[in-house]
Design a protein around this nucleic acid. Structure first.
Length: 824
RNA sequence: GCGAGAGUGGUGAAAUUGGUAUACACGCUAGAUUUAGGAUCUAGUGCCGCAAGGCGUGGGGGUUCAAGUCCCCCCUUUCGUACCA
């Protein structure tokens, strides 16, 4: 039989489709299910190497889980709203809806050619009303709970894309999508109050042992929880309280000035006078025009202006200068900081520049005092409190607690937890997104659209180009509605939602994709959730992967889902680069299309090449050399094994006994079981490269001429194909049918290791002398030290190094090593 | 700056988690076969050395009978983050 991959691959893809092989059952056994999720795709029309890698990893696992007898859910869909579609549509002068629909078709048929085991009956697209109806429903639930709110404030604005961006979409001060420098803009915006979930989002990371540590660390840092105190300073000659947040209340006796962010609201309450007022106004203007990049640059060159006002430190009654400085962040804490130059490097730089006093209140320890006059930088570590009145002598964390407790007693402060995480800005002034289901009524204010009137359909308009406000605002037939509350004249909210809202709950919709009365059926979701394995790129670590956890928690609070966390295990595959290590991109012209590769070499060989060339979590530098070795293996070694079948119909659940097989046969049986174990382990770790090398060894050791037992021969071959099936599904399925089986190989049972076969009765171990390998000996597995010594000392090589030398010690580790320590 | 990874042959990479370093491939070198081959097969392939032997997992220390693996200090590199008080 010739290996004609084109024929084989087309044949089986068709058959799989006809028999709905990958259709997940509607009634799954919650104790025996496997939800295999890959991140749904943006339908750009072409599938690149990164997608290919992502999907074959999920595919191999889904197929193995099928063979393990699980009810497997392996769905796919389209993250179809968003800027790229709009941009592409503008470039080509077609409507985003048409462009997207067309591309979904192209992308789907391409993926079907790759033979990924997706359950296409559950396909969803976030831009279709039957899906976004429920995205709007989610918005309304959040709104009802006070978790969706509108506020005016400074937002990230991309001048190129003419829309607001979430903090998560700003990288290095630039728009993640187009690279344009982001500016601040004062806008009325919708937010999701994700900060209400900040604690749970941090704490529950500890319940996810199968998430990569780097992602958990990134999320922890992004959420940025810190423990400290909020302390009220007071304005001199005024009742005004000026609250500050600090993580170092133990340094509070060292405050020599205070600094207020230029945008901080409290600045307006200070009633500045005369020249100070003008100077501060000037400074504010200047700060606002500086870009984020400039302002966030960490330098020692801090600047600010004095307000002419003074604040009183509640601990010691000291009067300190009140400054405005743009190194203070308006959006964190209270927007005001107490400045302790001796113990904070930023305050130190500022104090030096403006000749503000520096006062030491912490010593590294009792016996090593700090000398202010010799300090060239702030001492920021913990230490012993000094010059701090009744708190002198207190140390580190205890000091912090006691100082804060005092503030609570005296009622001018309290313990306080703060987060770097900000509420999620979700309004977008763009056309191609999910409309916000809110109506603005002059009488009633913001009113949500009634749930029975969802979806608020996105009108298909001709002019969808961005112009600084939502293009929908210029569509009167969309905008002008009756208020759902009072029936009076009202207008819709013209913005659309961030696409990350659409992708925050898609994994739930897959489970019940056609439901028209609720977003999903709770019972059905309970059968398949949580996601057992979620595979995707690392890029979403602090965006989508926080958002979808937030949604899951919110839906749990509403009683829609039962788990706190959506995904038990997360796996980030490595990137695919070209052979020079450059990320593949159209502009660089170094894109290798997986489609071309598969047309030339076949899907299965392409999959093998991608799997074999590097472990799944590592970056791959793709080169056509990656294909050579595995192609030879597949075509010349693995596939031709079918010719060695002897039609003996072996019982694949059987475990052979030693006496049934010849010595060679039994050695192969041992090897087979070792390989079963290794391949299974490799699958658990998603390290398919080692699974393939194990299979290569097994096939290498196979020798038909030396096998007399027909049943064993076929057993070995069929197990080999079963083990290969998740990696090379078409090839394996072909042989399975050729061998005479009726059903799919993916309905057969994944091989289970015969443990008794891999317990060897003798073993070769190394003999070391003073830690250096000198010889090997073969000894029985349960050999005691005495017997091992006898064998070891028979060796000439060992004698050579031990004769005439004093033996100090012998270390014998059963099954591992024999080490002799000699003197000299 | 801070945080988290990574560093093993000419190359992609293995290493049962402290126990024979370099499995499996690519490449290369010989040879065989072939009209030819981007084919196949056989042998070799960490470095130094004729050999015995020595040296070898970024560098330097350490723990141990034994270290790629554990500890300390550096170097390089990737990713994340960026004045979070």
């Amino acid at each position: 039989m010739k290996y004609d991959f084109k024929e084989i691959e087309t044949k089986w893809q068709k058959k799989w489709d006809e028999t709905s092989l990958y259709q997940a059952p509607d009634n799954a056994d919650p104790n025996n299910k496997f939800y295999m999720l890959v991140m749904f795709a943006y339908p750009s029309g072409d599938i690149h190497m990164g997608h290919f890698r992502n999907y074959i990893i999920g595919d191999a696992i889904a197929r193995q889980q099928m063979m393990l007898g699980k009810d497997v859910l392996h769905p796919f869909g389209w993250d179809a709203f968003g800027l790229p579609a709009e941009r592409a549509a503008i470039q080509r002068d077609i409507h985003p809806a048409d462009w997207t629909t067309k591309n979904i078709g192209i992308s789907r048929s391409t993926l079907q050619k790759v033979g990924i085991s997706f359950d296409w009956s559950r396909e969803i697209a976030s831009c279709f009303p039957d899906y976004y109806k429920w995205t709007q429903w989610m918005f309304i639930q959040l709104y009802k709970k006070g978790l969706a709110y509108r506020k005016r404030g400074f937002v990230n604005w991309c001048p190129e894309d003419k829309t607001v961006l979430a903090n998560e979409q700003v990288k290095d001060g630039k728009c993640e999508r187009c690279g344009t420098e982001v500016v601040k803009k004062d806008q009325n915006q919708w937010y999701f109050k994700i900060t209400d979930y900040a604690d749970r989002l941090v704490d529950d990371l500890d319940t996810l042992p199968d998430w990569p540590d780097n992602v958990k660390t990134m999320q922890r840092e992004w959420i940025g929880r810190s423990y400290g105190a909020e302390i009220n300073f007071s304005l001199e000659n005024s009742d005004l309280k000026i609250p500050i947040y600090t993580t170092r209340p133990d340094t509070i006796f060292g405050v020599t000035f205070m600094a207020i962010a230029p945008e901080a609201e409290i600045l307006d309450s200070l009633n500045l006078e005369g020249e100070y007022k003008a100077k501060v106004e000037d400074y504010k203007k200047k700060a606002m025009t500086r870009s984020d990049i400039e302002r966030s640059a960490v330098t020692d060159d801090k600047d600010g202006v004095f307000t002419g006002k003074y604040a009183i430190n509640p601990y010691n009654g000291e009067k300190v200068e009140l400054w405005v400085a743009d190194y203070v962040l308006a959006g964190y804490g209270t927007g005001v900081v107490m400045a302790v130059p001796a113990h904070d490097s930023r305050d130190f730089a500022f104090a030096k520049k403006y000749n503000i006093p520096i006062k030491v209140v912490i010593h590294p320890d009792k016996d090593t005092p700090l000398d202010v006059n010799k300090m060239t930088e702030a001492y920021t570590d913990y230490g012993v409190m000094v010059n701090s009145g009744q708190f002198d002598g207190l140390i580190g964390k205890i000091a912090i607690i006691q100082v804060t407790d005092f503030a609570e007693q005296e009622e001018f402060g309290c313990h306080k937890v703060n987060f770097k995480l900000k509420d999620w800005s979700i309004s977008r002034q763009r056309y191609w997104g999910c409309p916000i289901p809110i109506v603005h009524c002059k009488k009633c204010g913001t009113v949500p659209v009634a749930e029975e009137n969802l979806p608020v359909e996105l009108p298909k308009v001709k002019d969808f180009k961005p112009k600084g406000r939502s293009p929908l605002a210029d569509v009167p037939e969309y905008m002008n509605v009756k208020c759902p509350n009072c029936g009076g004249e009202a207008v819709r909210d013209s913005d659309t939602m961030d696409t990350f809202v659409c992708s925050s709950w898609y994994f739930l919709r897959y489970i019940d994709p056609k439901n028209d009365s609720v977003p999903f059926d709770k019972e059905k979701v309970a059968q398949y959730m949580p996601i057992d394995l979620y595979v995707g790129g690392i890029t979403h670590a602090t965006g989508h992967l926080i958002y979808f956890r937030f949604f899951q928690k919110f839906l749990k609070d509403l009683g829609w889902v039962k788990d706190d966390e959506p995904a038990k295990r997360l796996f980030n595959h490595g990137m695919v680069c070209d052979s020079n290590g450059e990320v593949m991109s159209k502009s660089k012209g170094n894109v290798v299309s997986p489609i071309g590769l598969m047309e030339e070499r076949g899907v299965d060989v392409s999959r093998l090449a991608m799997f074999f060339t590097a472990p799944s979590d590592k970056e791959v530098l793709w080169s056509s050399d990656s294909v050579t070795g595995v192609e030879k293996f597949a075509i010349n070694k693995l596939f031709p094994l079918n010719e060695k079948l002897r039609n003996s119909n072996p019982d694949l659940k059987y475990y052979f006994k030693r006496e049934e097989l010849s010595e060679f046969e039994y050695s192969l049986y041992i090897k087979l079981n070792q390989v079963i174990k290794q391949v299974s382990d490799s699958f658990d770790k998603l390290q398919f490269n080692t699974a393939i090398s194990a299979l290569m060894e097994l096939v290498r050791d196979y020798d038909s001429d030396k096998i007399k037992n027909d049943s064993f021969n076929d057993y070995l071959i069929l197990k080999t194909f079963q083990l290969s099936a998740p990696l090379v599904p078409h090839l394996a399925e072909e042989i399975w049918a050729f061998a005479g089986f009726e059903g799919s190989i993916f309905k057969s049972n994944w091989p289970i290791c015969d443990e008794s076969a891999i317990i060897k009765d003798s073993i070769v171990i190394g003999v070391q002398i003073n830690g250096k390998l000198r010889d090997e000996i073969e000894i029985p597995i349960d050999c005691d030290q005495k017997r091992a010594e006898e064998v070891a000392f028979m060796s000439d090589k060992v004698k050579k190094y031990t004769d005439g030398k004093e033996i100090l010690k012998i270390i014998f580790v059963k099954g591992r090593i024999f080490n002799i320590v000699v003197k000299g």
